[in-house]
Amino acid sequence: MNPRMMGATAARVLRQLRGDPRSIALILVVPAVLLTFVYYLFENETMPPGIPRTFDRVGLMMLAIFPFVVMFLVTSITMLRERTSGTLERLLTTPIHKADLLFGYALAFSMMAALQSLVATAVAYWVFGLDIKGNPGLVVLVAVLNSVLGVALGLLCSAFARTEFQAVQFMPVVVIPQILLCGLFVARDQMNSVLEAVSNVLPLSYSVDALQEIAGHSTSTAAMWADVLVMIGFVLAVLLLASPTLRRQTP
């Protein structure tokens, strides 16, 4: 690992993004707009006293799901371009280490994701009065971790796509099952045992668990940190799997 090359890679990826203001606007604004939809969707519900609003539950989870989805897409397309344009092969003839490249990407996109979740979390709190017990800083932390997970999975999936069209098709394969099973629609302990077992091995489930811990407790709990650790483990494992897909030699 060479921090200089990793930094140069992160700076380069951010410069590429800066050249595309429309994408930046979409990344920053779309989650806030979707949150607005969710808020008005449940505007007229009446809950017995003491039961949290649906928005407080669903809106919170969406804060973590947006960066995951967006960064998965952005990364898999960017990395696919890197593979097909020949720049990846060229980079791998230079002294750069694969880890510098992978972590450079993760660093750049997680900075973008931090901005995105700051905007979305601010809107959720100050515009729609999101009401949870825990610290909003922890919500942002989980959101950023989720984005890094999206980056890692995007890097890995880009190896299995030859065209951008194929890369986009990985979203229904990799992302949507995780959203269905993460506990957003049905609590994980109420799923049948097969689905629950599947959801146990999907990383997004742990971020939703962590958010529920944050929502329910005013201070950070050991269970939340355990979920965070599991997520970090997933990220490292996926990056480790992605590393051999960056080949220095091809037939």
Binding site: Q16, G19, R90, T93
Partner: peptide, 15 residues
């Protein structure tokens, strides 16, 4: 020590 320039230019178009 080795520099390689491929036939199809391999640079970042958006930079």
């Amino acid at each position: 020590d080795v520099g390689y320039v491929t036939q199809a230019p391999s640079v970042y178009r958006d930079l």
